[in-house]
Amino acid sequence: MGKRIVLGAVAILLVIAAAYASFYVAPEERTMGLVQRIFYFHVGSAWAGLLAFFVCFIGNLMYVWKREPKYDWLGVAGAEVGLVFTTVVLITGPIWAHPVWGIWWTWDARLTSTFVLWLLYVSYLLLRTLIEEPERRALHSALFGIFAFIDVPLVFGAIRWWRTQHPSPVIMGGPGSGLDPTMRKVLLFSGLAMCVLMAFLIAERYVLEKMRSEVDILQREAEAQ
C-alpha cells in the first residue's frame, strides 16, 4: 500500500511537470501553432499504452507457462490500463488532426492498426466476462492476449513501413527525422511521466484483480459449508 501511494504521488508530480513543460518549456511549432502541444500528451499516452499491452503480453506468456493466477492478474491489469491509454490516444489524435489535416479520421495504416488494437483488447476483456470457470478464463484470455499482441509491432511499424497520413516517426525514425532538441526533451519527459502513471494504474488494477480472486475463493468456501 505504502509503495503504491509513493508511486501515485510521483506519477501525479511527473504528469503535472510534463503538462507544464508541454505548455511553457517546449517552443511553439511554426506551422501548427498551439494545437501541436497536444503532441506531448498524445504520443506519451501512446507509448504508455503500448508498454501496458507489453506488460499484458508478458503476463499472458507467463500464465501459459507457469499457470499461476498472479500472471493472469497482471495480464488483465495491463490490458485494461493499455485500453484506457489507447482510448485517450484515439480521442486526442482526431482532436489534433482536425485543425491540421482538415479531417477527423482517415483509414491509414497507423490509425487503422491502432483502432484494431483497441478492438482486440476490448475483445480480450469481453472474452473474460464470458467464461465463468477461473482457470479456463485465465488460459483462454492468455492465449487470446498473446494473439492480440501481434498488432503492437504493426502499430509501431506502420509509420515506418508504409506511407501514411499520420506523421512519420520523430524518435527512432532514421535519417531525416527528428525534433527540436527542447521539444525532444519535453516529449521524452512526457513519455516517462505517462509510463509512471501507467505503472501506478497497473499496480492498482492488479490489487483489484487479486482481491476479486480472493472473493471467488471465499465464496466457494462459503458455498461448500
Binding site: 503538462a19 501553432g33 498551439l34 494545437v35 502541444r37 497536444i38 500528451f41 498524445h42 499516452s45 484506457v84 482510448t87 485517450v88 480521442i91 486526442t92 482532436i95 489534433w96 482536425h98 485543425p99
Partner: peptide
Amino acid sequence: KNLNSVFAAYLIGWGA
C-alpha cells in the same frame, strides 16, 4: 488559435 482543441484534448484525456 485552436485553444479549444488543446483544452478539449487535455480535459478529455485527464478526465478519462
